[in-house]
Every structure is written in C-alpha cells, then in structure tokens.
Design a protein around this nucleic acid. Structure first.
Lengths: 229, 229
DNA sequence: TCAAAAGTGTTCTTGATACACCCATGC
DNA sequence: GCATGGGTGTATCAAGAACACTTTTGA
C-alpha cells in the first residue's frame, strides 16, 4: 500500500554505535550487511524509524532485532544529514550510542544476530556509508562525557575492581593514569560501595570488588553534585 | 506533483533557537505563526528540510528566510521525535541553536521578517509544539558549553568590554561572578587583545575595549589548549 | 561633589600531581 | 621464592576562592 505526499521526503533511520569494554579494550559492535548497497560490508546496527515510535524506541528496537541487546544505556548522539550519505536516496540518520556490560560473557560477543561481531574500536574494518564518521563522533562524545558523568560504569559488570575501572578510563581517554591518584579521586566521591568478596583472577593478590551506588549518585546530583573524572 | 513511497514517512524539519544578548539579558528570537496549527502563537523559526540540502543548510536557509539572519554561529543541538509533537502528522525536527551578535543594533530586533521578535529567555510567551522544551535544551547546552569553549564571544560585538563579557557569563550561567577573579582568568589565556580605544557610555570611567583573537585560539586549540571558563 | 562603573593584588585554601614500596596469591 | 598485579601516603605545586579600595568620568 503506497503512501503519497505533496513534497518528496527523506527517509529517516537510526544507527547505533554500541560500545563494550573487554580485555582492556574498547570495542564496537558491527553487523555485516546482507543487502545492497554495501552488501557484505560491516556497518552499524540500525534501520528505519516507524511512524508510531519515538526515535529512542526505534533505536532500541533495531538494537534488539539486529543484535539481541536490550536494556542498555542509550543516548542520542547526532543527526547525520549529508545529501549523498546513502547512494540510493536521501536518508537522514539519527545516530545513537550505547554502552553495554560486556565483560564476563565475552562469549556472547559474536553471537546474537547471525553476523554481529565485536571489533576493537581502533581496528574496525572498512565501514558502509558514513559509519566511520559516526563512530568517530560517538567516541569523541564518550571521551568527553566520561570525565563529568559516571557513564563508565555502564561498560563494566555490576561488580568490578578499581583496576578494571582504571583500565576502562585509560582505554577511553587514551592516556595512562596514576594508580594512587585515580583511586583517591574515584573513592573520594563515596559512590563506590566496597563488597566483602574479592576477585581472584591469577597469581597475585585478589582485588576488592566495588559496586557503583547509582541511587546515591542520583540524590547527590539533584543537590548540585558534580562527578568529575 | 505527488511523491509516493512504499512505507509512510515522517516529515523532517529544522528548528532554530536563536540566542542574543542585550541589555544584560539573554534573549531568544521567536516568530509568530501565520498558519494553523498554533496560528498566531509564538514559535521557533524553522521549516521543512529539502531533499537537496544538508540539515545545516536547511537551518541556515530557514533562519535567513524567516528572520533575515545570515552568517551566524549555528550548531546542531538535538533531534526531537516524540510521536505526537505535531498534531497534524508525524514530524521529526532537528533542532539547532544559533548565537548572534545583537548588541548595538537592538533596533533591528523586532524587524526582519514581519513578525519576528526578541524575548527575554526566561519571560518567553507560551510556545507552539514542544518548542519550550527545545529552548530549555538549547539553554542547557549553551550553559554547559560556554565554560569550555569560547562561544560567548559570538553573542558580543567584535569589540567589547570585560564587564560586558562578565555580564554575559553571569546571564548564561545564572550566577554572579567575582570581578577580579573573572578578569584574571579570562585575561590569563592571552586571547583577548586590548584596543587603544575605550568605551564611553555614562557618567563613569570609560572601559577598555577588547577583541577576541580567534586565530590565536585556533592555533592554541590545535596544540591541545583548553579554554575553560 | 556625587554617583556609577572601571580597574587592580594578596592571602588562604583546596585540589592536582608526582612519586616508591610492601602485600597477597598461584605457580 | 618469584612473578604478578593489588594496595597504600606524603610532599609539592598550581589554581580557585575570598575579599576592599582607588580611579575616572559625566552630571
């Protein structure tokens, strides 16, 4: 059943840059295109926005459909509207970025939708459309935001060690951080609750596990508290 | 000449939140709608995106058509896609914010397009669509960005006094700043070139005029310099 | 001579940085 | 017992915050 309009309209899509953190590296989830254009090339998960869903809902739906991911941190990034970004016709895409807790079930990495796969952000393959640009833009956003909002925890399992957290920050910011200063700073907010359990991983002293206290953060935030680094 | 598509499509628009600074107040430029829906109500300048223009180009075009403004600072803000934000049909709007140098020719304020008018941001009339939300979001963006990027100068004439600059920051941030600390900080970057001329305004000591050195800023920025408040 | 805004320095406090060694564990 | 990452404290330095008076002008 065709739909008719007085003026031509751009198609509207959403695309999601999904970040995960695993093996000390920042990774991005890509899917292999089954159809032309760019058939068999890697691309961001995404698709067309339906008339009866918000943009956020479209992003979440496409993410679930194409990668199986649900209930993740998701935020609008930027809208890409270059005239020829899609060779077929005019397509404007609202880009989102998502942060998922990937550690632990790194196995699930390559599963879900038939041909979804995690790539190290800085070793991603050639991408379809302007998706490389979208990833660069998402990376810049995360890099900026991680310093003044506690979004880093979205990339870690609910219980994590301070070293894991530090490595995450180092991966995102692209610079080494001093261990003692990092721990001092991050503990000074009182937002990390130490657990009794420890994390045994290898031939060295077990690390204490912590949990981010999101409720407490929310209460502090309302009173004007600013998380910083 | 009608256009038909296999699936229904949302209409795509741009809306611009235009900020100006005048009489120590942050102002926003609104236009009075000539047509339904929301006929005679105030709204943001904006309109439909054409198929052969980028989103930025559409925003600039609409701004010029509806307000006469050209060559202003313009940046994409956020894309609003609530399902029923337009009562007629599904309309997704890419919002922009603009900063214009308004001081001096405050007269031109109420002119340009027939029914464009400047309003103090915090005393704006009831607005059409979700435009109040868009303005709030633009305000939050400017408030956040003004601290770490020199966008404030876009709101001042090319030559300005430090008091003007301080009042601008106070208006945007919504808090009073210490005069000596502000001047020390802002001059410490070496990005403000003092002019010989002074600004005589009233029955008090004339103020030195300064000019923001955008070239120097650009050079510093490339080398990793960070403007901060 | 008065009102009104311009202009100017110092002290104190706080937070950032730099830096080196002992601890608990598995092999 | 040794290799590996976990964990801790202090001294220095830089930046931010607090704060009051003199100057220049027009009326």
């Amino acid at each position: 059943m065709p739909h008719t309009y007085q003026y031509p309209r751009a198609a509207l899509t959403v695309d999601c840059v999904v970040f995960g953190f695993d093996e000390g590296e920042l990774k991005v989830l890509l899917i292999q295109r089954a159809l032309d254009p760019f058939k068999a090339q890697w691309a961001l998960p995404g698709g067309f926005v339906r008339l009866d869903e918000t943009l956020d809902a479209a992003a979440r739906r496409e993410l679930a459909e194409e990668t199986g991911l649900r209930d993740v941190f998701l935020e609008q990034l930027f809208t890409f509207g270059a005239v020829a970004r899609d060779p077929r016709e005019r397509v404007v895409s609202v880009a989102y970025y998502a942060l998922v807790k990937l550690a632990g079930h790194a196995a699930c990495a390559a599963t879900d939708a038939a041909d979804a796969q995690w790539f190290p952000v800085f070793q991603a393959p050639r991408l379809a459309f302007d998706h490389a640009e979208i990833i660069a833009s998402a990376l810049a956003r995360v890099k900026g935001k991680v310093r003044y909002q506690p979004i880093g925890f979205e990339l870690l399992p609910p219980e994590f060690t301070l070293s894991q957290l530090q490595h995450l920050y180092e991966a995102v910011l692209g610079e080494a951080l001093d261990k003692r200063n990092f721990r001092k700073k991050v503990l000074s907010f009182g937002l990390l609750a130490p657990l009794k359990e420890t994390f045994r991983s290898a031939a060295h002293r077990p690390a204490r596990l912590f949990r981010f206290d999101a409720d407490k953060y929310e209460r502090l935030r309302r009173r004007g508290f600013n998380f910083e680094l």
